[in-house]
């Protein structure tokens, strides 16, 4: 009995962590699809969202929801800046310069925030007013429940947005074939800017939601982003459902392995899982094999 409760508890926190990875991974995937570039500053989007929330909610004392919306608006503006500062000047170059440029952006963002906000991590209130509930010996943290629900909701929203709205379809067309989209009169640059905005907002939401659990700190995004990136590869590079499933899977693998194998090597399991996937199923769970055309 105790064995079962323990593993259910581990499973729950694994899913909670996993949905954080999934949320960040979703932001990754959208940018990969739109620009074919991995954004190494994706984790810092979450960090910025967290700090914006701390500023508006704790610092300026705005009501929770107003502060939340304020943080998301700030992230939207940031998305525009990021697009024009980091991606746009390099849009005609190969993936490597862009990748390195986002890496530079990550260093820049972390240290700028360090300078402005100082090195102390900041606490953040939970969305709900209770700590959690205990079900059959398993404690369910209210914030993890919120994150799980929010992830499902955002995935659903993203799906509707891309499949059911004209703007979403234009975005899809852009991500599939930029030249064709251009011929059809779709403003490609604008579509990519919108993708960055959306991705930055998603990152911001992740930061605000994770803040109460992991606290808001300079490095909060880095390790999450690495795992989220691993999740996108495990799920299938550039695949939305893959990102979600990959994220959840990774969270669960990590927690179970930490419980049953060794705690200090917890961070290694994600990367080990990634290695195994890359060796035996490099296209990921949902990915298809693609070869370059001559």
């Amino acid at each position: 009995m105790q064995f079962i409760t323990e593993n259910l508890q581990i499973l729950f926190t694994g899913l909670g962590l996993g949905s954080i990875y999934a949320l960040v991974a979703l932001g990754f995937v959208l940018i990969i699809r739109a620009t074919n570039v991995v954004n190494f500053a994706q984790g810092d989007f979450a960090m910025l969202g967290g700090y914006a929330m701390v500023l508006f909610f704790t610092g300026l004392g705005w009501p929770y929801w107003i502060a939340f919306i304020g943080a998301l608006l700030a992230m939207a503006v940031f998305g525009v800046l990021f697009n024009y500062g980091v991606y746009y000047p390099l849009r005609h170059r190969s993936f490597l310069p862009v990748l390195i440029s986002t890496l530079g952006a990550s260093i820049f963002l972390q240290n700028t925030v360090l300078y402005v906000a100082g090195p102390q991590p900041k606490p953040l209130d939970k969305l709900l007013n209770f700590d959690g509930i205990t079900l059959g010996g398993v404690f369910l943290d209210s914030q993890y429940i919120v994150i799980l629900v929010a992830t499902v909701a955002l995935v659903f929203f993203t799906f509707l947005f891309f499949e059911k709205t004209l703007l979403g379809k234009k975005l899809q067309a852009t991500s599939q074939d930029k030249d064709m989209a251009r011929l059809l009169g779709i403003p490609v640059a604008l579509m990519i800017a919108i993708t960055f905005i959306y991705s930055a907002v998603l990152g911001g939401i992740a930061g605000v939601l994770v803040g109460p659990i992991l606290f808001v700190s300079i490095g909060m995004g880095s390790i999450i982003a690495l795992k989220a990136f691993a999740a996108t590869i495990i799920g299938g590079f550039g695949d939305v459902k893959g990102a979600i499933v990959g994220g959840l899977l990774l969270g669960v693998i990590e927690s179970l392995a930490a419980q049953h194998i060794s705690v200090p090597y917890k961070d290694a399991y994600a990367f080990l899982a990634l290695f195994l996937f890359l060796l035996f199923r490099p296209q990921g769970i949902f990915g298809e094999k693609v070869s370059e055309k001559a």
Partner: peptide, 18 residues
């Protein structure tokens, strides 16, 4: 802000000084 400048430098190298 040295490290921040360093990050900015990486972006600028990519854009202007490949």
């Amino acid at each position: 802000v040295y490290l921040a400048v360093y990050g900015l430098g990486v972006i600028l190298i990519m854009v202007f000084l490949y």
